[in-house]
Amino acid sequence: MCLAIPMKVEKVEKDFAYVSIGNVKRKVNISFVENVKKGDYLIVHAGFAIEKLDKKKAIETLKILKEIK
């Protein structure tokens, strides 16, 4: 049930952001996440963003993966 998916921010309006994944669009509450900008990926759970996807860290993990022989 703790399912949460990354969705892309299209527009920010006060405490809410309009996000999308494929053809699904939603308005989600962003009061737990700071500095949300258009183009960010938010981790969305039951109508709320619970965190922002950190691009740098995601690339870091990819690098670690490539280092495992």
Partner: peptide
């Protein structure tokens, strides 16, 4: 923490507080 791209060491402070 394998899920660093999403999980911060301190968690989500605002969410914990509420």
């Amino acid at each position: 923490n394998e899920y660093k791209r999403t999980v911060k060491e301190e968690g989500n402070l605002k969410a914990k507080k509420i």
